[in-house]
Design a protein around this nucleic acid. Structure first.
Lengths: 95, 95
DNA sequence: CAGACGTATTGACATCTGTCGATGCGTGAG
DNA sequence: CTCACGCATCGACAGATGTCAATACGTCTG
């Protein structure tokens, strides 16, 4: 569903988490790096990341004991496409 | 807040409503035109439109007894900007 | 004015959602 | 093997959200 992608970003915490990942120096971050900035417990952050991952916005990679989350390669395109689809006009698009 | 815009689109019903308006022949629609396609009661549709309007995605214009809703002029740009902001990378943007 | 019609608001209710503490699962260190 | 550490899952709970029926509000018509 289209709304599922937007739903993943309907929470300020998830928006911040995604922005943090996108702006991270290496383009990735582990849970332990994010709990403190957002001021939430580790299970809660883990839950939010799970939502973002299920929406296809981030990817998860386990390296050792840490789980590194990164912006999905097609996240930007997927979001742009979603916006396009929702605001698509009837007459051959505006732009 | 940024998440507020996405939150407005976090419900499948609102996504459909917005799409219907964007795809409408005249670019606008009244409540009575939308209750039947989405299969919801009039108050519920009115509520959803109120949410979309408060998010700045649609505009409301009262003409006679009917209230015409249309896609806000900057809705597309606002959404695109929101996507850009969330997925913005650190190093001078990707694209 | 009085009634009909489209819409918005209110109140109530079931469900979803974000949050936490406790606990379980893997992995690396000793 | 045993322990410490990072993360995920579970159970529980408060608050938010979608939905409807009832009702109030505005506008046109007679």
């Amino acid at each position: 569903m289209l709304a599922q992608v937007f739903k993943a970003l309907s929470d300020p915490t998830r928006v911040k988490l995604l922005s943090m990942i996108a702006a991270a120096t290496d383009g990735e971050a582990c849970i332990c790096d994010m709990t403190e900035p957002v001021g939430l417990s580790q299970p809660t952050v883990s839950h939010h990341m799970s939502v973002l991952a299920r929406a296809g916005l981030v990817t998860r990679e386990q390296r050792g004991k840490w789980a590194y989350y990164a912006l999905a390669p097609d996240a930007r395109a997927a979001l742009a496409g979603a916006v396009d689809q929702v605001t698509a006009a009837h007459e051959g698009a505006i732009a």
